[in-house]
């Protein structure tokens, strides 16, 4: 059966290798871009490619967790990619610390595997979702998807300064609300 955007998830569920091929053709670029941004200067090209491959392996193995009613497929895949990239980043930082004679305490802190509770995550997302558009989208695209300010400025037809200003306003509002709920802590 021919694979398309419409039956991609169901064909993956049937473990159709053509669907895996389609998946990689269609989404490798956007997944690669996200992982490259999260790993930043820590990773070599080979690390990034390995991480991208691991995302597709995870999508193949975990497709039964995908719920079409909750998210579009691309969003589900990108969330998978984001957390896979964070795993890689923790590993790479630990490797770099092991190799380095001078250990940066901040870097050690980065390796901590801290995850907020479901409730705290929902509260935080609820606050972000209350931001007016395009601030809400900007916030997710910058801080969840690590998009560059220049790219956001171009995409939203705003100056970089205007993007920074909107994000600053969002951060301040979020910080105030999180303080109220005692979530997130401070630097």
């Amino acid at each position: 059966m021919e694979v398309s955007e419409h039956n991609l998830d169901s064909e993956l569920l049937k473990q159709n290798p053509l669907a895996l091929e389609f998946l990689m053709n269609a989404y490798a670029n956007v997944v690669y871009g996200l992982i490259q941004r999260i790993l930043g200067g820590l990773a070599q090209k080979e690390d990034i490619e390995e991480c991208v491959s691991d995302v597709f392996v995870a999508a193949w193995n975990r497709i039964d967790e995908y719920d079409r009613s909750k998210a579009i497929f691309k969003t589900w895949l990108l969330i998978l990619a984001k957390y896979k990239a964070l795993d890689y980043r923790r590993k790479l930082i630990k490797q770099n610390i092991t190799l380095s004679l001078e250990v940066d305490p901040a870097a050690l802190h980065e390796t901590e595997d801290v995850i907020l509770s479901k409730e705290a995550t929902q509260v935080t997302m609820g606050i972000i979702d209350s931001f007016p558009e395009p601030d809400r989208s900007l916030f997710y695209r910058r801080y969840f998807y690590y998009e560059k300010l220049d790219v956001l400025a171009l995409q939203y037809g705003l100056t970089k300064k205007a993007i920074e200003s909107r994000l600053y306003r969002c951060r301040t509002l979020l910080r105030q609300q999180l303080d109220y709920f005692e979530i997130g802590g401070h630097e």
Binding site: V30, I72, I115, K118, T121, D129, S137, F144, V151
Partner: peptide
């Protein structure tokens, strides 16, 4: 860091957020 610590099981509202493809690959 805060967004990195979000619990992946609780994401409910990112479906309309699309991101720019960089053409890096």
């Amino acid at each position: 860091k805060l967004m990195d610590q979000m619990n992946p099981e609780s994401f409910t509202s990112l479906e309309d957020i699309d991101i720019h493809e960089t053409g890096a690959l």
